[in-house]
């Protein structure tokens, strides 16, 4: 038993018995307002020393110990919840079908068709790309919309908050004067002019990174990778450029306007082309999109343009979020 717990139990005992010795803290609190004797009226003196009611004691006790008791309870509760959930999940996982067994329920006609016919039906050598961008393209469209939603939210909360002419008409309505807490924070990125090593490395590696990103995106239907991973690679090139040459340099060719325009139009192209494909598929109309020969760059129907669109969205969004966090604007 540690000292804190002992003290807590002692306090608790004193509080229960009531007439026990006052704790130091409580005394300190009652003594706190130093009132000069000649300004004190007699009835006030009496009120200062009257027996405390139960409610007052409760309030004092909560003020003194509430936080520590709460943190103890919170901790034990969170540990118990964690242990219970982890245990439950471990038991569940141990009862699941064995990993990699060929009689598992997941090895059914769905997987069979994806693997056997995937190449011929979608034209993509990389069956994962065929699966996510053709068989289940609606989900992937939703996923890119998730990214778009996130980007719009961050842009709304971080960027639009900081314009000077952006005050709402009714200040009272919008929470008194606490709305200024998100005012433009100073940029935290200090640019050093003589950082020759960083610049040298950046000038060498940025072209290589961009090339790598483009390869991953364009070969998305042939090799592992695709729009999302390629876009992430491209965004690292932008981030490196911003760090080596300053945000102003990036701002010259990529600002908020370009960002909104490029990602909106990429998503729009995605939505319209895939919408056409969905619509024709559901109404049993031939879509007329050529599949091409498996293994060629220009094959797999819509998968290549969709990968490029996703790449643009991801690259812009990840860089944009970085810029918003560090500079407060894109």
């Amino acid at each position: 038993m540690n000292d804190g717990l002992k003290k807590f139990l002692l306090d608790f005992y004193n509080w229960v018995t009531g007439n026990g010795a006052r704790t130091e803290n409580e005394d300190a609190m009652t003594e706190l307002p130093p009132v000069l004797p000649f300004t004190m009226e007699p009835d006030k003196i009496q009120s200062r020393f009257h027996e405390k009611t139960l409610q007052e004691r409760r309030k004092d006790w909560i003020n003194l110990h509430g936080l520590s008791v709460f943190s103890i309870l919170y901790r034990s509760f969170s540990i118990i919840t964690c242990v219970v959930i982890v245990g439950l999940l471990l038991i569940t996982v141990s009862e699941l079908p064995p990993f990699g067994d060929e009689n598992n329920p997941a090895n059914n006609e769905v997987i069979d068709r994806y693997i056997k016919l995937g190449g011929n039906e979608t034209g993509a050598q990389n069956i994962v790309a065929g699966m996510i961008l053709d068989y289940r393209a609606f989900d992937t469209f939703g996923e890119s919309a998730v990214l778009f939603t996130g980007a719009v939210s961050v842009l709304m909360i971080l960027s639009a908050a900081r314009r000077k002419n952006d005050e709402p008409k009714n200040k009272l309505h919008s929470g008194f004067n606490d709305r200024n807490f998100l005012k433009r924070a100073p940029p935290i990125h200090e640019l050093k002019d003589d950082d020759a090593i960083l610049r040298g490395v950046a000038s060498l590696s940025i072209p290589a990174i961009i090339l790598m990103g483009c390869v991953v995106i364009i070969n998305g239907h042939l090799t592992p990778g695709g729009g999302f991973s390629g876009g992430a690679v491209l965004s690292t090139a932008l981030i490196l450029c911003a760090n080596a040459y300053g945000f102003k340099k990036v701002h010259e060719f990529f600002n908020e306007r370009t960002y909104i325009f490029s990602s909106s139009s990429a998503l729009l192209i995605y939505a319209l082309s895939k919408g056409y494909s969905f619509f024709t598929g559901a109404n049993h109309i031939e879509s007329g999109i050529p599949i091409g020969t498996i293994g060629n760059i220009f094959s797999a129907g819509l998968i290549l343009p969709l990968n490029i669109c996703v790449g643009i969205i991801v690259a812009g969004t990840l860089y944009g979020v970085y810029a918003l966090f560090s500079e407060g604007e894109i």
Partner: peptide
């Protein structure tokens, strides 16, 4: 799984429309 994807959109959008009023 489609439902899950749209739950995600729903969650992010719902949290942001709460935060739009920008007071503490």
């Amino acid at each position: 799984f489609t439902s899950y994807v749209f739950i995600e959109i729903n969650t992010i959008a719902a949290c942001s429309i709460v935060a739009v009023k920008n007071s503490a």
